[in-house]
Amino acid sequence: MQIQVNTPDGAGGEDLTARVEQAVVEAVARFSEQITRIEVHLSDANAEKGGEDKRCMIEARPTGRAPVAITHQAATVPMALRGGLNKLTRKLDSVLAARTDHKGAASVRDNDPGQ
């Protein structure tokens, strides 16, 4: 699984990139075999104005499925990232769980020897 972190003009440097990559790996560990790439875009939504203006947009590319994207805004970058990763894991759980699970059990399609 590839992880790409994008910030405006490289803000935060390698330290921020490493922390974001580590947070992503921990958050999506159970989906790692089903995802080929994750892109994280961190930005300041309204520059000098105050408020909840740090934006985290995350796009995950599951194998054999359309990309999944979420956006989360918060007061700080860590809060935006944490909220974005929570949204992403919930979304991936609903999108990818249908592949193998049906009401907590393995899918009948996966166990069918005739296919």
Results as ranks from 00 to 15, higher is better:
Glu39Gly: 12
Ala29Phe: 14
Ala27Pro: 05
Arg37Leu: 04
Gly13Cys: 04
Ser32Gln: 12
Asp15Tyr: 05
Gln34Tyr: 08
Glu21Trp: 00
His41Lys: 07
Glu26Phe: 09
Arg30Val: 10
Leu16Met: 03
Leu42Trp: 00
Ala27His: 04
Val40Gln: 05
Ile38Glu: 03
Val25Gln: 15
Arg19Ala: 12
Ile35Pro: 04
Glu39Val: 12
Asp15Ile: 06
Glu26Asn: 12
Ala23Lys: 07
Gly13Ala: 10
Glu33Ile: 09
Gln22Asp: 15
Val24Lys: 08
Glu33Thr: 14
Val25Tyr: 10
Glu14Ala: 14
Arg37Ile: 01
Gln22Ile: 03
Glu33Met: 10
Thr36Lys: 11
Asp15Arg: 07
Gln22Arg: 15
Thr36Tyr: 03
Asp15Lys: 02
Val25Trp: 08
Glu14Lys: 05
Glu26Val: 12
Val24Cys: 06
Arg30Gln: 13
Arg37Tyr: 02
Ala23Val: 10
Ile38Arg: 00
Thr17Lys: 13
Gln34Asp: 14
Glu26His: 13
Ile38His: 05
Ile35Trp: 08
Leu42Glu: 03
Glu33Asp: 13
Ala23Cys: 10
Val40Asp: 02
Thr36Gln: 12
Arg19Tyr: 02
Ser32Met: 07
Val20Ile: 06
Val24Ala: 07
Arg30Asn: 11
Val20Arg: 00
Ser32Phe: 00
Glu26Ser: 15
Arg19Trp: 03
Val24Tyr: 04
Asp15Phe: 00
Val25Thr: 14
Thr36Pro: 00
Asp15Thr: 10
Glu39Gln: 14
Gly13Glu: 08
Arg37Ala: 04
Val24Leu: 06
Gln22Phe: 04
Ala23Tyr: 06
Arg30Leu: 07
Phe31Gln: 08
Leu42Gly: 04
Glu33Gln: 15
Phe31Ala: 09
Phe31Asp: 10
Glu26Arg: 11
Ile35Asp: 03
Val24Ser: 07
Arg19Gln: 12
Val40His: 04
Ile35Phe: 11
Thr17Asn: 13
Ala29His: 13
Glu14Val: 08
Glu21Pro: 00
Glu39Tyr: 07
Glu39Ala: 15
Ala18Asp: 09
Val24Ile: 11
Val40Cys: 08
Glu33Gly: 12
Gln22Cys: 05
His41Pro: 03
Gln22His: 11
Ser32Ile: 07
Ile38Thr: 11
Arg19Ile: 02
Ala27Gly: 07
Arg37Asp: 10
Val28Arg: 01
Ala27Met: 07
Arg37Met: 01
Val28Phe: 06
Leu42Lys: 00
Gln34Arg: 15
Ala27Arg: 04
Asp15Asn: 05
Thr17Ser: 09
His41Glu: 09
Glu14Thr: 12
Ala23Thr: 10
Glu14Gln: 13
Val28Ser: 06
Thr36Cys: 08
Glu21Leu: 00
Ser32Pro: 01
Glu33Val: 11
Ala23Asn: 09
Arg19Gly: 07
Ala29Thr: 14
Ser32Gly: 09
Glu21Ala: 12
Ile38Leu: 14
Glu33Pro: 09
Val20Thr: 07
Glu26Lys: 13
Asp15Met: 02
Ser32Asn: 14
Glu33Ser: 14
Gln34Met: 10
Ala27Ser: 14
Ile38Tyr: 02
Ile35Gly: 04
Ile35Val: 15
Val24Asn: 00
Asp15Val: 09
Phe31Ser: 06
Ile35Leu: 15
Gln34Asn: 09
Gln34Ile: 05
